[in-house]
Design a protein around this nucleic acid. Structure first.
Lengths: 187, 187
DNA sequence: GTGCAAACTTGCTGCTACTGCAAAGTAAGC
DNA sequence: GCTTACTTTGCAGTAGCAGCAAGTTTGCAC
């Protein structure tokens, strides 16, 4: 991941071959594909596991707390993780604004997040997520708010207060979530 | 596009080569890439032009109408287009729930839509979309609402009333848009 | 220290997506 | 009938990615 990030930044995504990356990381090209399903996922290693853990925790928390609160906690957990290594996330973000395959990867990761949240919310509300709007709508809104906050933070070059932005965005979205909750909860 | 849709449905995305498609469409393989940038975009031909036209019209309408109204009109235009050939859109949707490359293509198309809306909204609100949350947030919310409606329609096998679903979803989201508008408009 | 099993790493072979370049065909206008 | 612009095509090459099978390392029991 480090090698890929560096090389992409140095010479661009297209100009970097798998072999370049594996040479830099001192492994064989074939090994690459045991850890990353494709070239465009190299910057997102381990995401799946972390997301699953997060979703699971969200599933537990939402049983004891109002939906909005549990949701905010979950999303802030993600955002807070950015502070561990802002440089990495910033550089990655700059890369995926430039090269579409990387952008696609982010979008996929994000969608998986929404799917996870949707499932938990549906279970909690006791409705079928395929026929009812509410769960997916709530998940989409909350996740969208977070993404907007992140985008703005990235645009600021990491100078803005990501956590504050996220809280603000979620605050804006909250009335809609409330509306969805009351419309979606079966009587 | 037709050949691709049929073949993907018959034997799957991976199992269909470009050559299969071009054979079925009676053109040379090389010709394929003059019309579609990649295999995964074959089902989305012409999207770019249509989207640009829509965004432009939205830009004009939003000057004479409340944002929410113009936004709803724009999104309903998209959704209404589905009624021209529901079979095509349904089949395509089923395909992209099954194969990730196609799913990625949808996500990209969708994101381009959000970007377009964001730009127009930022201009209308007179703010910088890179430093202010509001424009992107509003675009994301409205677009998200539409997507949820579409997803639900697809899950119903096209039986549900797509337009009604979209209106409902947008209605749920409206309070958040209003909130964003009042928080985002500079004094 | 030895031996076994599981996990990790690698090489090889092959298919296919995709690109650049340049030629061939084709339709439109004069 | 000729020029011009556009579309279609062929060819040759690069690189992503998968399956298979062999080699290597690691963890653990004895």
């Amino acid at each position: 991941m480090q090698a890929a990030l560096r090389l992409f930044a140095e010479r661009g995504y297209d100009a970097t071959t798998i072999e370049d990356i594996t040479d830099a990381a001192d492994v064989a090209p074939r090994t690459f594909f045991h850890y990353f399903a494709s070239k465009d996922e190299v910057l997102f290693g381990g995401q799946d596991d972390r997301r699953e853990a997060l979703i699971q925790r969200f599933g537990e928390e939402v049983e004891h707390q109002p939906v909005e609160v549990a949701l905010q906690n979950a999303l802030l957990t993600i955002v807070d993780a950015f502070e561990d290594d802002p440089g990495f996330f910033l550089k990655r973000a700059q890369l995926y604004t430039q090269w579409q395959p990387l952008r696609s990867a982010v979008l996929r990761v994000n969608e998986a997040m929404v799917d996870g949240l949707t499932e938990v919310l549906a279970k909690q509300l006791g409705v079928d997520p395929r026929t009812e709007l509410a769960p997916r709508l709530i998940a989409t809104l909350a996740n969208g708010a977070m993404r907007c906050a992140i985008d703005t933070w990235v645009a600021s070059g990491g100078k803005a207060d990501l956590r504050a932005l996220t809280v603000r965005a979620l605050h804006v979205v909250e009335p809609a979530i409330t509306a969805a909750l009351s419309s979606g909860r079966p009587r």
